[in-house]
């Protein structure tokens, strides 16, 4: 019994230690932002690999999620004769919740895991040590540009997701199911509030961007530098990011819309 408690205590201490190390990493990541101001090219390169290369999966997913929303929404709303509210329903669902949350989850799976694997392999192949010995701080030179690229990318990807989702909803609702065009777009325009819905959605996606990228970078930087260590770190990135996004979504929604 005592051994069980000791083991639980050991796990707890390990988790807290890792959490502490993750927070300590935040300071150099933020300080590395000054380097980016001097050399914006570092950020631009990472925006491409972190953001641009994630566009395809976001676009396809957004389109299909919007189409499903249009389909499901139509069948429910038509029971009450409320098909004209389909545009509002699709847009509100996407802008408030599904856009930021699903984008963050997809980002963690596509870009987050890639960031962890890249940084972990750089550690395993001594590239990070090599930078240190060349008097170059890898936290500023390698980690910080990726961190800020993630923060910039996620809100833009979420906006793209929501936009294509609305288009998908319209394709199904207006194109296939015959919802009135004016009702669809006017309902959306009238019902969506800029501050209440759009700004809050953007705030959510910025928070998710910070958290997902921070987790991905920390897991890569802190991993055991072996094949197995990198593999485990990559898995942890997806699991921790997904749980953090879902948990934070509840907290943020409660704060914003309650």
């Amino acid at each position: 019994m005592i051994e069980l408690f000791a083991q639980l205590g050991g796990w707890g201490m390990q988790a807290l230690t890792r959490l502490g190390r993750a927070h300590l990493l935040l300071l150099p990541l933020l300080r590395g932002g000054l380097d980016i101001l001097r050399r914006p090219r570092l950020l631009v390169d990472q925006l491409f690999s972190v953001g641009v290369l994630t566009i395809l999966i976001i676009a396809v997913a957004g389109l299909f999620v919007g189409m499903v929303l249009g389909l499901q929404g139509y069948y429910i709303l038509s029971r009450f004769g409320g098909e004209t509210a389909l545009g509002l329903m699709v847009a509100a669902s996407l802008v408030r919740e599904l856009g930021p949350v699903l984008t963050a989850l997809l980002f963690a799976g596509r870009a987050g895991s890639a960031l962890t694997a890249e940084i972990g392999l750089m550690k395993a192949t001594e590239q990070l040590s090599g930078l240190e010995m060349m008097a170059v701080n890898p936290q500023y030179r390698i980690l910080a540009p990726r961190f800020f690229a993630g923060i910039v990318s996620v809100p833009l990807l979420a906006a793209l997701f929501s936009m294509l989702g609305v288009m998908g909803g319209w394709m199904v609702g207006g194109g296939m199911l015959g919802v009135d065009k004016a009702a669809f777009w006017n309902g959306m325009q009238g019902g969506i509030d800029f501050h209440e819905d759009i700004v809050n959605g953007v705030i959510k996606s910025v928070v998710f961007g910070v958290v997902c990228t921070w987790i991905a970078i920390f897991q890569g930087y802190d991993c055991v530098p072996t094949s197995e260590g990198v593999s485990r770190a990559t898995t942890r990135t997806v699991v921790h990011s997904s749980l953090a996004v879902l948990g934070l979504d509840f907290v943020l929604t409660a704060m914003m819309f309650s």
């Binding site: 750089m122 001594e126 590239q127 090599g130 060349m134």
Partner: peptide
């Protein structure tokens, strides 16, 4: 460290850069 060089067992070359850019890296940085 700018006055010290180190040759790692694996070489530790930056894999996203060409040979030229790897050698130019410390010159561009410092």
């Amino acid at each position: 460290r700018m006055r010290m060089g180190m040759l790692f067992q694996s070489g530790a070359l930056l894999t996203d850069m060409s040979v030229f850019d790897n050698v130019a890296f410390p010159l561009r940085e410092h």
